[in-house]
Design a protein around this nucleic acid. Structure first.
Lengths: 199, 199
DNA sequence: TCACTATCTGACCGATCGTTCGTATAACTT
DNA sequence: AAGTTATACGAACGATCGGTCAGATAGTGA
């Protein structure tokens, strides 16, 4: 199962696991090769060799975060029944994911979206692409909920996507700032109210 | 009218004006003395002398942003009638402030709160304090709207504070990421719906 | 005009940044 | 066992970081 390059792949993953923790706390710019090397007890050049540039390290870190997020949030959501249950599960998982501090600084994408929203470059572009993916996913789940008869047909889907996402991101940042978990409950309360109390 | 230290005070304000623009784009950590000096055509040590340390520069930048935000958003809001109109005006002004890019990277506090939410130190503490101030202000305005009979007495004020703030921050980041102004309208739509369509 | 003080500069400090390169060490292939 | 490749290291690079300091310059009050 190791493949031919098992050792390198393992180091890479260990490195990226540390990288997402650093990035969620100090940002993808605060993520430096020297610090990564020191914390992992590896050489700076050794880590550098795995990625080729700082920017590639940042992009690899985003990919890794995406993987973990998919595993913890997206995949479980798709095991819930189509429609409103799936939508609710997605947000419950997202909030649990942030609350559990799977990454040291909470939700990776909330952090990175805020960090790069006003900048230029490849990293920003990838972050924007992720935002699009997320919005499209949410749009689909909401439309399915309408199809299933769980939501009113006339509903403004884009508006709903905006609001629900706003709740989740706010819960993440507020809980980190105030060190008070209750904001996650606030987000879920807001979400359920917005989707209608029924069910 | 110059007072005794007019020249220094002027340089200080020009420096801070540039600092908030840099900070809203690249964060308060991305704000460096060298860059500030280069853009302002001043010497690094000259700028440094005004603040004494990088951290003091960051704190001064926050104070400056607070001033400008107060002038553009808070003060106008208090000229609107007590109750729901004041609440609505506050958010309209906030959204206009971000949309107009008074600071190059949009809302200063949305950016900085996301940047420092998972860190430690004086800067974080000041940011948290600002968040508290904002929450208390919003709480007061909502309570006044209840007193004026503009909102239902039984309403969950903290919950409302959370949701309304979430809309504003999301609009700021989404508009920056997508370069699409419409998110501000989304936020105001969500806000009005949440406060009740009437009036 | 003169003295004083506020303001700003330029050279420099040690530390760290991302990056390059030659080389050593491990691991796998044959 | 030998040969080959993957992996990691250590020393060094120019640039930049925050910070220090002695001295030049400018503005003020007497």
């Amino acid at each position: 199962m190791d493949g031919r390059h098992a050792r390198g792949a393992h180091t890479r993953r260990v490195t990226l696991a540390r990288a997402v923790d650093i990035a969620t706390v100090d940002g993808l710019e605060g993520l430096t090769l020297g610090r990564l090397a020191a914390e992992l007890q590896l050489s700076k050049s050794g880590i550098f060799a795995h990625f080729g540039s700082k920017e590639e390290l940042q992009l690899a870190t985003i990919s890794f975060a995406e993987e973990v997020f998919t595993e913890h949030v997206l995949r479980p959501a798709f095991q819930a029944p189509r429609g409103k249950p799936r939508l609710l599960t997605l947000f419950e998982r997202w909030m649990d994911f942030s609350r559990a501090r799977v990454f040291a600084g909470g939700c990776f994408f909330s952090t990175v979206m805020a960090e790069f929203d006003a900048r230029e470059g490849k990293v920003r572009d990838v972050v924007v692409r992720w935002r699009t993916t997320w919005s499209e996913l949410l749009t689909r789940l909401i439309e399915e909920a309408v199809e299933e008869g769980h939501l009113t047909p006339g509903i403004d889907v884009s508006q709903l996507v905006f609001e629900l996402t706003a709740f989740g991101r706010a819960a993440n940042h507020d809980s980190l700032l105030t060190r008070d978990d209750s904001h996650y409950d606030r987000a879920l309360t807001a979400l359920r109210a917005r989707l209608g109390e029924s069910d």
